[in-house]
Amino acid sequence: MGEFNVRSVLVTGANRGIGLGLVQHFLRMPNPPEWVFAGCRDPKGQRAQELQNLAAKHPNLVIIPLEVTDPTSIKAAAARVEEQLGGSGLNILINNAGSAQPRTLDNETLETMTQTYTINTVGPMLLGQAFLPLLKKAAQGSPGSGLSCSKAAIVNMSSYAGSIEDVYVWDFGQVVSYRCSKAALNMLTKCQSLAYKEHGILCVTLHPGWVQTDMGGSGSFKPPLTVDASVQGMLKVLSSISEKETGTFLDWEGKVLPW
């Protein structure tokens, strides 16, 4: 990953799980970003303690209050990031914040469907809109004509569970609202890739694997992948993708997944 030079990155849902893992790995890079922005709902709360500890040691880590379902919070976060960047753009927006409700088709409700869709699909759309000026600025300020994550990118954290062609681990859990929201997120990524290509912004959707997190685990079952292994794999993928991968659905090893 020596070629992966990123000046600035924003990770949503950064206080635990994959989001926290991404922040930790960016900070540990041989040539870390000048700014790592970590978005979370309650930066001063107990659940953000690890993030607070990291920020105390790393002056380039800035914790940003961010509720991805609240347009006012998103606008305030964009203004805060813009102020911190002081005239330069944002290289990568990683829409990682997500929610899953362990419900079957029979007991899905309007409330759980709407809430999950709002967090997992509408949130990334609103964030893409709010941070578009900063992403465009980063793209304009980068050399070369091709697309890359070192230039400007939106990375949407999806799931193989959103594949319509290959309905992943259905027997393990139906999680219908989650599957529907991730399938919709995949379409959002495709739309973003078409709309934002002219601005020099790469857009990709990633399946991080079945990871050992609060969301990924279920009772005594232990998912096969650690956060570390997933994040290392995804960063390797992000360091190597280019224009031909924009608008695609990849896993943490770089394999193309079926829509």
Rank of each mutant, 00 (worst) to 15 (best):
L257C: 13
L194C: 14
Q52F: 01
G89L: 15
G254I: 05
C149Q: 01
S158A: 10
A56D: 06
E253P: 03
F221W: 13
W170Y: 15
N107L: 11
T104E: 12
P224T: 00
H207L: 08
K222V: 14
G200P: 04
W252I: 13
Q84F: 02
V36Q: 10
G144R: 11
K222F: 07
G86D: 15
M29C: 01
G141D: 11
A100V: 13
N15I: 02
F4N: 09
G2A: 13
D106H: 11
P32N: 10
T189F: 03
L135Y: 06
R7A: 09
W259M: 06
L206V: 10
G39F: 00
D214A: 10
Y168R: 14
M215A: 09
G144H: 11
L27P: 01
A55T: 14
L20P: 00
S88M: 15
G200A: 08
A153T: 01
G98P: 00
I74Q: 13
G200T: 11
R7N: 11
S142G: 05
H207R: 13
W35I: 07
Q24H: 09
G98A: 07
V211D: 00
G209K: 13
S220V: 08
A97P: 05
G123F: 02
G146D: 14
G19E: 02
M1P: 06
C149K: 05
D251N: 09
G141I: 03
L235H: 13
V122Q: 13
V175A: 06
T114C: 14
I18D: 00
G254N: 06
V175I: 04
R28Y: 07
T104W: 05
Q84Y: 04
A38S: 03
N186V: 08
G21Q: 02
A153W: 02
S240F: 08
F221E: 12
G219V: 15
G87Y: 14
V81S: 01
G45L: 01
Q115W: 06
E243R: 04
T118A: 15
N156D: 10
L135P: 03
A48V: 10
T104A: 12
M113L: 04
K197G: 12
V68L: 05
F4I: 12
K244L: 08
I18K: 01
M125N: 08
Y168E: 15
L85C: 14
A161C: 15
V23S: 04
